[in-house]
């Protein structure tokens, strides 16, 4: 708690400053104050928490799950075969250069307002960091540790399961922590561009009504949820990989 005190103080100071500026400007459709946003969240709590948040979370987690499965599988294949790695690595990087906001409408065109257009955007945005981080994790294995295992008669499978997989666990957590906010962003962008529910969609709808606090409310909610998920992953990481700094 003491460790987090400085950032807490900074957040409070920013909120106070924001409150003052919003009061001075006095145009809530441009810059609503933090208290107005909080009131808006409370006012819209039912629709935000029971309709739009679950819709966004469904897209976020489904996209994240698909990215994790595909990303790990691809990282394993790339680690097992250097030729495949050399062939796929540029493609994986190229996938990251595509601007999400530009390609998302295309997905809407292909899949309509269905859930898959949104999931695809989330996968596209999270697939790269997961694949590359996991690939780095598999390759982070110390050569001398691998050689020691070889002297015991280990085969490729043993090296992978007994050395590479455990060595990559800290990287897995880093990948997830990196991918969670990105998947939330991906889901929100996709909803913003074309959806019938979700926090991104809700924010867009509030904008058409010039409801500043209504635009901010889902954004605040998304940030809080992303921070909560990253916090939970960090706690899990601390429990699972206490040895992280011992390698």
């Amino acid at each position: 708690m003491i460790k987090r005190l400085p950032s807490l103080i900074i957040i409070i100071l920013i909120l106070i400053l924001w409150q003052i500026i919003a009061f001075v400007i006095s145009a809530p459709y441009i810059l609503p104050s933090p208290t107005q946003i909080a009131f808006k969240i409370w006012e819209l709590r039912k629709t935000l928490f029971t309709v739009h948040l679950p819709a966004t979370m469904f897209v976020t987690f489904t996209g994240l799950l698909i990215s994790v499965v595909l990303g790990i599988a691809l990282a394993v294949v790339m680690d097992m075969n250097e030729k495949i790695a050399n062939a796929l690595y540029p493609l994986v990087i190229a996938s990251q250069t595509i601007p999400t906001t530009a390609i998302a409408p295309l997905f809407v065109l292909w899949f309509g307002y269905s859930i898959w257009a949104k999931i695809l955007v989330t996968v596209l945005i999270t697939f790269f960091p997961i694949t590359i981080t996991m690939y780095d994790g598999f390759r982070s294995v110390k050569r001398e540790m691998e050689e020691l295992l070889i002297t015991y008669g280990a085969k490729k499978r043993d090296i992978f399961l007994k050395l590479k997989v455990p060595s990559a666990i800290p990287y897995f957590f880093s990948a997830i922590k990196m991918a969670v906010p990105l998947s939330v962003i991906g889901a929100a962008i996709a909803e913003w561009l074309g959806a019938q529910s979700g926090l991104g969609y809700f924010s867009k709808r509030m904008m058409t009504q010039l409801d500043g606090a209504g635009v901010f409310a889902p954004i605040v909610l998304l940030s809080v949820v992303a921070m909560l998920i990253v916090g939970i992953v960090s706690i899990l990481e601390e429990k699972c990989v206490k040895w992280r700094n011992d390698i």
Binding site: M145, Y152, P166, I169
Partner: peptide, 28 residues
């Protein structure tokens, strides 16, 4: 036929002491 003990202990940090010393036996 031979066993190697390097300069660094190279114990696997995610394994307990018992599991570390079992490693060569797992390979067998």
């Amino acid at each position: 036929y031979s066993s190697y003990m390097p300069q660094k202990d190279l114990l696997y940090p995610w394994r307990t002491i018992k599991k570390n010393i079992c490693l060569p036996m797992e390979m067998q």
